[in-house]
C-alpha cells in the first residue's frame, strides 16, 4: 500500500503546485486544500499502515494479542483536518470579500496595500 500512497501524495502535491501558481486566489486555495490533504496522507502513512488489525483489546486482556494499528496518527490527522477546514473556511470568505471589495482575486492585480510606484 505504501508505494500507492506515496505516488498519490506526489500527484496531489503536483496538482496543488500547478493550482497555486495559477495567479487566482481561488485556485490557490484549491491547491492549498490538495496540499494539506497530501500532508494528512503523509502523517497517516508515516504512522504505519496496518490493514486488518484494529487497535482493539480482547475482553479481560490487558494488552492486544498481536501488533495492531496505531491510533495516534489518525487522531493527529483528524485534528489537522478540523483545523485545516476552519482555516479554509476563513480563506474562502476572505476570497469572497476580496472579490466584492477589490473587484478582483487575480494576484497580479491586487496592489492596493502595496501600490506600484509612479512611473512604472
Amino acid at each position: 500500500m505504501e508505494p500507492v500512497l506515496a505516488v498519490l501524495v506526489g500527484l496531489l502535491v503536483a496538482a496543488a503546485v500547478y493550482l497555486m501558481l495559477a495567479r487566482s486566489f481561488l485556485l490557490y486555495l484549491f491547491g492549498l486544500i490538495l496540499v494539506s490533504n497530501a500532508a494528512n496522507l503523509v502523517i497517516f502513512a508515516a504512522g504505519g499502515l496496518t490493514p486488518g488489525a484494529p487497535p482493539l483489546i480482547e475482553t479481560g486482556a490487558l494488552a492486544p494479542a498481536g501488533p495492531v494499528a496505531n491510533a495516534l496518527p489518525q487522531a493527529l490527522v483528524l485534528t489537522a483536518i478540523v483545523i485545516g477546514f476552519g482555516l479554509f473556511a476563513f480563506a474562502l470568505v476572505l476570497a469572497f470579500r476580496a472579490m466584492t471589495e477589490l473587484g478582483t482575486i487575480e494576484s497580479d492585480e491586487m496592489r492596493i496595500a502595496e501600490p506600484p510606484e509612479a512611473g512604472r
Partner: peptide, 24 residues
C-alpha cells in the same frame, strides 16, 4: 483585505510544511 490575502496564503503554506514535518 489585500494584505490579508497575502498573509493568509503564505502562512497556510508554512502550516502545511510544518505538519508534513511533524508526520515524517
Amino acid at each position: 483585505i489585500d494584505g490579508a490575502v497575502k498573509y493568509v496564503a503564505l502562512n497556510l503554506v508554512s502550516t502545511v510544511l510544518f505538519l508534513t514535518g511533524v508526520g515524517l
